[in-house]
Amino acid sequence: MSEHPLPDPADTIAEMLHQPELESDAVRSESRRGVLIALPSWIYLTLFFAIPLLIVVVYSFATRSSTGLTRLTGWNIESYKRLFDPLVAEIAFRSIVLAVATTLICLAVSYPFAYYIATRTPKWRNLLIVLVLIPFWSNFLVRTYAWRIILGSDGPLAQITEWMGFEPVRLLFTNSAVLIGLVYGYLPFMVLPLYAALERMDWSLVEAARDLYADGWTAFRKVTWPLSRPGVIAGSILVFIPSLGAYVTPALLGGAKTTLLGDYIVSQFLAARNQPFGSALSVAVMVVMLGAVVVYFRSGAKNL
């Protein structure tokens, strides 16, 4: 056999027939279709998310006139300096404590519940999930007003505790009332991702752990819990973020002495007519949330 064989005629024909332009055309039209499909969501997100966000960021560097108008001149970072005011620190601290408490209580309540649902037969699972979602069928504001009645000074809670011979419990306009309201409102956001994680769980892994001499609790700690952690992380983020910025619940159930970040930002925009400071607060809260999410995801991913 020679070192350089003559080209096989079949190869030559194949080469002539091979037209790379045709292939790249196909790839290009494929990617163009992709852009087209995503276009509505791009437009929507740009108009109603990116641009308003940009406006908030721009406003946070603007100045407030003596009459409360925002002047888009004389750019400065005064609003950001005000974030270090002890009053702001106190509000931020209270909000974070409340959001962390809400998240932990939701987790503690939801985990056994999600576990229970995930270990039922498929028919029961679906029914129970629907029950979790039923509160969403009525307006959030209406449901929060219902809590005002329950927790109010003559409400059922006060009456029942009095009837039982205790000092009547009146929680309305306290931090406890806000906590109850937040836990109530965000519980489904914890239950659903936990359920999704536990429902996918391969229970033969738990059996394997039991088979390898782990008792029930150890098998949970070593297998079920670590494998459900993606659900714990997703649920915690879904509860923590809206709790930190919650406005309606604290406004309706909290008292004057328990201002939280949400109220405070709203009051800057409305009552104080200080849009630059309100914007700076909003940007700061967003940055903190983003940071928290990144840290949480990182630590979670490492332990998985």
Partner: peptide
Amino acid sequence: NPPNERPVNTVFQSYALFPH
């Protein structure tokens, strides 16, 4: 007796190896 008290071990059909 629960499985952890028995001197037997199982090889599962799906292997059931701990993914983490």
